[in-house]
């Protein structure tokens, strides 16, 4: 497998429960890859393992060729993570927050100031950059959050439902920002429930169900294989098939 972000045979168990089972995926530079699945399918656990927040029970993750387990600090420095439910420090302003994370990622000082100013301008944050984050709207918070994830110019971006809590306008703003990052050559892994975003943004798609990868490919390939007219129907069909297969395995005890 080749790519900027590579996962091989990821497994995550919590006691007896297997949340993710043998998931392998890759994202190349300049590519946006979508990861879709119903609630509880294992998407967030997979993304958290890729981001180094959770340690895989089995399998490995490589970011820009660096093994996350062997050199976690180097690997994390090349990766940006953002999720829909990530919040900001209420008593810091977006500018202070960006400077704080810039220091954690060891961005040298003259460069840090330039990047903070540039991101504030690009993401249209000037009007609220010096107000406490606790006083911002959801859309403003998510812009500050995305600036935080972009600040150290990571090679790979992992975005877990970044538009889930936003209105259409704010969501669109984030989507456009992601497109710009793709144009800048970043590898982007993106999970969402909004099918239109997937159709608009993603070069390839992984479909996850019950902790396993059940489908993957380009949008056109998936539609062709499923015989459906749109991604929503294809997604639902594949999910039902996977559920039926799992029920059969449960009832018959599986292959012997």
């Amino acid at each position: 497998m080749e790519g900027m972000l590579i996962a091989e045979g990821l497994v995550k168990r919590f006691g007896d429960f297997t949340a993710v089972d043998q998931v392998s995926l890759s994202v190349s530079a300049g590519e946006v890859v979508g990861i879709l699945g119903p609630n509880g399918a294992g998407k967030t656990t997979t993304l958290r393992m890729l981001a180094g927040i959770l340690t895989p029970t089995e399998g490995s993750v490589r970011i820009d060729g660096i093994d996350l387990r062997e050199a976690p600090l180097k690997a994390k420095a090349r990766m940006g993570f953002l999720s829909g439910d990530t919040q900001l420090y209420r008593r810091l302003t977006p500018r202070e927050l960006l400077r704080f994370f810039g220091k954690l990622y060891e961005v040298p000082e003259p460069l840090l100031s330039r990047r903070v100013d540039r991101l504030i301008e690009e993401l249209d944050m000037a009007s609220f950059a010096d107000r406490p984050c606790g006083a911002l709207s959801s859309g403003q918070k998510q812009r500050a959050n995305i600036a935080r994830a972009f600040l150290h110019e990571p090679r790979a971006l992992i975005l877990d439902e970044p538009t889930a809590t936003l209105d259409v306008w704010s969501g669109q703003f984030i989507v456009e920002a992601i497109r710009r990052e793709r144009a800048a050559g970043r590898a982007i892994l993106f999970s969402t429930h909004i099918m239109s975003e997937v159709e608009y943004l993603c070069d390839r798609i992984y479909l996850v169900h019950g902790g396993r990868l059940v489908e993957q490919g380009r949008l056109a390939e998936i539609l062709e294989r499923s015989g459906c007219a749109n991604l929503t129907d294809a997604f639902l069909n594949r999910a039902r098939e996977s559920e039926a297969h799992q029920s059969a395995v449960v009832h018959t005890g599986g292959p012997r």
């Binding site: 958290r48 180094g52 994390k76 420095a77 990530t86």
Partner: peptide
């Protein structure tokens, strides 16, 4: 407040 994971994924 859901702010911890930003630290956990930082280097």
């Amino acid at each position: 407040r859901n702010t911890l994971q930003t630290l956990l994924c930082a280097p």
